[in-house]
Design a protein around this nucleic acid. Structure first.
Lengths: 157, 157
DNA sequence: CCGGTTTCCGTTACCATATAACGTGCGGCA
DNA sequence: TGCCGCACGTTATATGGTAACGGAAACCGG
């Protein structure tokens, strides 16, 4: 799947250029690592891998890059896992000030194989928006993470 | 609101007795602290307060109590904050093996005042269940946390 | 009441996640 | 040319969470 990674990197490059954001070499490298993981991956796991090519990398190195990628909507944080994963749909939604872009999305996380499927379900988003409206709450971003068994693992056992 | 805390403690006591679970003095004390906080509160904040009456308390002391309270459905974890809050509706749903009870609930977390309102919205739960069904995912538990401004803070500014 | 078993919790040590604070170099721009 | 702001290195530290072991107390079948 190296081809898919390369493609995503080029799309990210284009999106950043369009917005005047600078996808530096470091940020690009971290994004590549997140893409290559294919699953939610912890900051320190990324750090270990980053160190293969960058001797002096430290926690702030990776966290700053992750913050940038989050702001640009290129990755998401999976709160239940304290881990990060590439956005499945990074193109064409605007970045968002103040951490964590707003494009509605939901994760279905398999407890067996570790995969996290991202979807963008309008009726979930609508139900949340309606509930918020009802209590006078003004939403700025939502975390929706469902844990369970993916289709493949449910069949297997 | 000490009265409300006392009432919740007695309800918790009753629920545990009913299920054959032991709400020991330590667990009761931790539950009291969570209730008194009234907002999501971190494990180490609880630990500090616990130490007022219990000199030797250490992280495992508070985490074990929190695990118990989670299993009994008396509190929830707020993933976005790595914090814990009393369940707004602790009565009458059965406890749940394997950490984190399943009773569907959602949090609306105010970024200004820090309050977290818990609701149990059936249409959000239904939308999630339907999306899961569509992709063949077998859900075991869901985290729904909306960040934004509560009604009071939205008015204030 | 006894002895085995389980549960609870103290204690120590440690790992994992995340951020603060400060310095330096570089590129853009008046 | 001098200033400014951003990106990043570097060190230190805050915050969140567990593993592992042992002793004491509660429970239970006899």
């Amino acid at each position: 799947m190296a081809a898919a990674t390369e493609h995503a990197l080029e799309a990210a490059e284009a999106a950043c250029t369009l917005r005047g954001a600078r996808l530096t070499e470091l940020r690009r490298e971290v994004l590549r690592l997140v893409l290559e993981a294919g699953q939610p991956v912890g900051a320190y796991a990324l750090l270990d891998r980053l160190r293969a090519g960058r001797a002096g990398a430290a926690p702030p190195t990776v966290y700053r890059a992750l913050d940038f990628l989050l702001e640009q909507g290129l990755i998401h944080k999976v709160e239940r896992l304290n881990a990060f994963i590439a956005c499945a749909d990074a193109h064409d939604h605007a970045p968002h000030a103040g951490h964590g872009h707003a494009h509605p999305h939901q994760f279905f996380i398999c407890g067996r194989c570790g995969d996290a499927a991202e979807i963008a379900d309008a009726s979930i988003a609508a139900a949340i928006a309606e509930a918020a409206r009802r209590i006078g709450f003004r939403p700025r971003g939502a975390t929706v993470e469902v844990e369970g068994l993916c289709a493949a693992c449910a069949e297997a056992g």
